[in-house]
């Protein structure tokens, strides 16, 4: 194996080992989403909506997005710890270089995000019987990929936070201050009928996921619908669905590049 690849994998494996050996990981990344799932199950399961669904079926996408949002905390804690304990400084005296550190970190966080999403999918669609359009697995996979891309974009915000946070605890606190308002203002937990929701990526992700996975809309031919209160009576907008996905991809690229540039600027001099 080429040494560069070996180094990137070593960084990713090291990050995953540290993550899985810390109890906070289980609490934030798995405990809270599972808790929300069961709260939603008990509150919404009995409320029927059109299309043969119940409210829990619809609300489960917001739990998946909520779980993916923890990428912000994961990336922020991972890089802030690296900075705080001095290992980033020690790594900066080796030939590894920041690019490989970032790629290794993004790799570990992506693997972790995938494990997290698959666990939630197993719980929701496997164990609790959440329904989706004609039970077509392909639609579910497309929907999950969109949430995965969103999860990657949350890493960028985490990197921004890590540029400023001094300790892992501070990084967790700042991340929570970002994640929770964004989730609520995007209207994915509590329907929020306001154009404000357009400014928050979780709104776009939730809408696309529900259109594709719950309504079976075609990402190439159908349009994005504006809905905040009722998915089934939502009107089509002029934005094509693929265009909305492009917005998510662009937001991901911007947040990642911006985060990395800011982190570099704030941490390259050890004065």
């Amino acid at each position: 194996m080429k040494i560069e690849l070996q180094q990137i994998i070593a960084i990713a494996v090291k990050n995953l080992k540290i993550k899985f050996r810390s109890y906070q990981t289980y609490l934030y990344a798995f405990g809270f989403p599972i808790l929300f799932t069961f709260i939603f199950l008990f509150v919404f399961k009995s409320i029927e909506v059109p299309g043969g669904y119940n409210v829990f079926d619809l609300a489960f996408s917001s739990v998946l997005i909520y779980a993916a949002s923890f990428g912000t905390i994961n990336a922020a804690v991972s890089l802030t710890s690296e900075k705080h304990r001095g290992t980033l400084m020690r790594l900066d005296t080796t030939p590894i270089g920041r690019t490989k550190i970032f790629i290794g970190t993004l790799l570990s966080e992506s693997v972790f995000l995938a494990i997290q999403l698959l666990s939630m999918v197993f719980l929701g669609y496997g164990l609790l019987g959440v329904r989706f359009h004609e039970q077509k697995v392909l639609l579910l996979i497309i929907g999950l990929l969109i949430i995965f891309i969103f999860g990657i974009s949350t890493l960028g915000i985490g990197i921004v936070i890590s540029a400023y946070a001094k300790t892992a605890d501070a990084a967790t606190g700042i991340s929570m201050c970002y994640v929770m308002p964004v989730l609520f203002l995007s209207g994915i937990f509590i329907p929020f009928d306001s154009p404000i929701v357009y400014f928050f990526p979780p709104f776009w992700v939730n809408q696309i996921f529900q259109q594709v996975v719950m309504l079976g809309d075609n990402i190439l031919t159908d349009s994005f619908r504006y809905h905040s209160l009722n998915l089934f009576s939502a009107e089509f907008t002029v934005i094509p669905l693929w265009g909305a996905i492009l917005i998510i991809v662009l937001a991901t690229l911007v947040s990642l590049c911006g985060g990395i540039l800011l982190f570099q600027r704030k941490t390259l001099a050890y004065e």
């Binding site: 194996m1 040494i3 070996q6 180094q7 070593a10 090291k14 020690r90 790594l91 080796t94 030939p95 590894i96």
Partner: peptide
């Protein structure tokens, strides 16, 4: 040790 060895460019 193995991690930092790899970071220095040594074969695993």
């Amino acid at each position: 040790l193995v991690f930092f060895g790899i970071m220095q460019g040594k074969q695993k």
